[in-house]
Nucleic acid binder design. Structure first.
Length: 287
DNA sequence: AATTCTAGCAACCGCGGAGCG
DNA sequence: CCGCTCCGCGGTTGCTAGAAT
């Protein structure tokens, strides 16, 4: 199958967006809403491909986009989410209100990667970045070229300070919103924050999601390893039916056959939230 | 002062999945 | 079920500007 190009490249602008182009796109989307990216350039009279419009809108023009430096809280969250999810930037960004996947990805590649490798970013380099931003900002506001200057979007916009991210896990199961009680029966924590499974109540495997995070996302995470390390034969979760297959709901008898923990089970939303955010006991749990 | 190096970030590209007829 | 279009994602590229030489 031959994939058609997203748009004809001929006669289209490439590279940095100008303020004029931004205004056109912003106006159009304010009136008509998002979506139908392929038709937007034509309808709005932009010499850009739909993809480019989408990217520009989602990364820079959307009104709820947060500008300014990544806070320490956000950085911690990115690190932990990356440990959990890997390079799934859109999922990570989804947990950072106002941050885009592109921004998170860039921040990771340019800053956090080095930091975690042990290279401390030099102070001079940080100030370098700030200087750059300032200069960019000045340039874009003072540019007198007859061509509309490309925007230095980030530097142009005021950095808004917002309260640190509060994770809201909107749990769903199989696409429907889950009752929070359902999460609670998954497992609970002991005094050390260690999960205790009670999955006898959960007799069927299923793909479980917490927000957009599917349980399979956790398979290589420390969260999951912690769960595994802390399950003993005394825990209910390892006793499940021998006749239950891993594919269908409902399960089978009750013959207490041990099942591997790689099987999907319900988990506590609270526990997950703690793991993602502030629970130092959990964070420091040895794996 | 000029040149080269380096870092940061915006934008592009290609692929895969979802949805629809 | 198949073919097709569109959207969204993640990797990569290229430009810009400060630092270093």
């Amino acid at each position: 199958m031959v994939r058609t190009p997203c748009c004809s490249k001929e006669g289209l602008n490439k590279g940095a967006w100008t303020a004029h182009e931004d205004q056109i796109l912003r106006d159009y989307i304010n009136i008509h809403g998002e979506g139908k990216w392929r038709t937007i350039p034509k309808d709005a009279g932009l010499k850009r491909c739909g993809k480019s419009c989408r990217l520009r809108w989602l990364n820079y023009l959307k009104p709820d986009i947060k500008r300014g430096n990544i806070s320490q809280d956000e950085e911690d969250l990115i690190i932990r989410l990356h440990k959990l999810l890997g390079n799934r930037w859109s999922l990570i960004a989804g947990r950072l209100p106002g941050r885009t996947d592109n921004e998170v990805k860039n921040y990771w590649n340019t800053t956090l990667k080095k930091k975690l490798r042990g290279d401390q970013p030099a102070e001079s380099k940080q100030s370098n970045t700030e200087k750059k931003k300032k200069k960019k900002s000045n340039k874009s506001t003072n540019n007198n070229n007859n061509k509309t200057p490309p925007l230095s979007t980030k530097s142009q916009l005021e950095a808004k300070t917002e309260t640190p991210h509060k994770l809201k896990a909107e749990a769903t199961t199989n696409g429907r919103v889950a009752d929070s009680k359902v999460h609670q029966v998954g497992f609970k924590c002991n005094d050390n924050g260690v999960p205790i499974f009670k999955s006898r109540e959960v007799v069927y495997p299923m793909e479980y999601s917490c927000g957009e995070l599917l349980l399979s996302d956790f398979s290589d995470s420390d969260f999951w390893k912690i769960c595994q390390n802390n399950c003993t034969e005394d825990n209910d979760h390892i006793h499940r039916t021998s006749t239950t297959t891993t594919t269908g709901p409902g399960g089978g008898g009750a013959t207490n056959t041990r099942i591997p923990l790689a099987q999907p089970v319900l988990f506590s939303e609270d526990l997950f939230r703690d793991w993602i955010r502030d629970d130092h006991t959990f964070r420091n749990q040895s794996i």
